[in-house]
Amino acid sequence: MSQVADITIADVRALPPTVDVVTAGKAFGLGSTTAYRLARAGEFPCKVVRAGGGWRVVTADLRRVLGLDDQERAAS
């Protein structure tokens, strides 16, 4: 059984416009197998798109689902 590495709020804010499913899954505390299973089933917690032979997660939607956009607006 593999362990999910911690990803911080600062890490999420520093992500590029899209990330792989494993990276996004870490933000939700998911392991890679579960993240890919949810993506294939259309049940991943945020927007996932097929790109070539892989899956990409739109970072803006990841931040929105995690409530980080609201925190950034409130701090402004």
Rank of each mutant, 00 (worst) to 15 (best):
G31W: 01
R56D: 03
S32E: 09
R37H: 08
G42W: 02
S32I: 00
E72M: 13
S32Q: 07
E72Q: 10
A74D: 12
T18P: 00
R40W: 06
D11M: 11
D20L: 04
V19G: 08
T18E: 08
D6Y: 09
R73V: 15
D69M: 08
W55M: 06
E43M: 03
V19N: 09
A51H: 12
D11W: 12
A51G: 04
L15V: 00
V49E: 10
A35H: 02
R64G: 01
C46T: 15
A74T: 13
W55N: 12
P17G: 05
G53Y: 01
R50T: 14
A41S: 05
A75K: 14
Q3L: 11
I9W: 06
T59E: 02
R64I: 04
T23N: 04
T33R: 13
A14R: 13
R64Q: 13
L66R: 11
M1A: 14
A35D: 01
F28N: 08
F44K: 00
V4W: 05
P16I: 12
T34R: 09
A27E: 03
L30C: 01
R63W: 07
Y36H: 13
G42D: 01
E43F: 00
G53M: 01
V49M: 11
Q3S: 14
A27Y: 10
D20S: 11
A14C: 03
A24C: 05
S32V: 04
V58H: 06
D11H: 15
L30K: 03
A24R: 02
R56T: 04
T59R: 04
A75V: 13
L66E: 07
S2V: 12
T34V: 07
T34D: 02
D70H: 08
G31D: 06
D11Y: 08
A39L: 03
A5W: 00
G52T: 11
Y36E: 01
A27I: 07
Q71A: 15
A10S: 12
G53E: 04
G42M: 06
R50G: 10
A41Y: 00
R56W: 04
A60L: 03
F28W: 08
V12L: 04
P17A: 03
E43V: 02
V19A: 08
R37Q: 10
C46K: 10
P45M: 10
E43K: 14
A24E: 05
A41R: 09
D61W: 07
C46Y: 08
D61I: 07
A39N: 01
R63Q: 15
G29R: 12
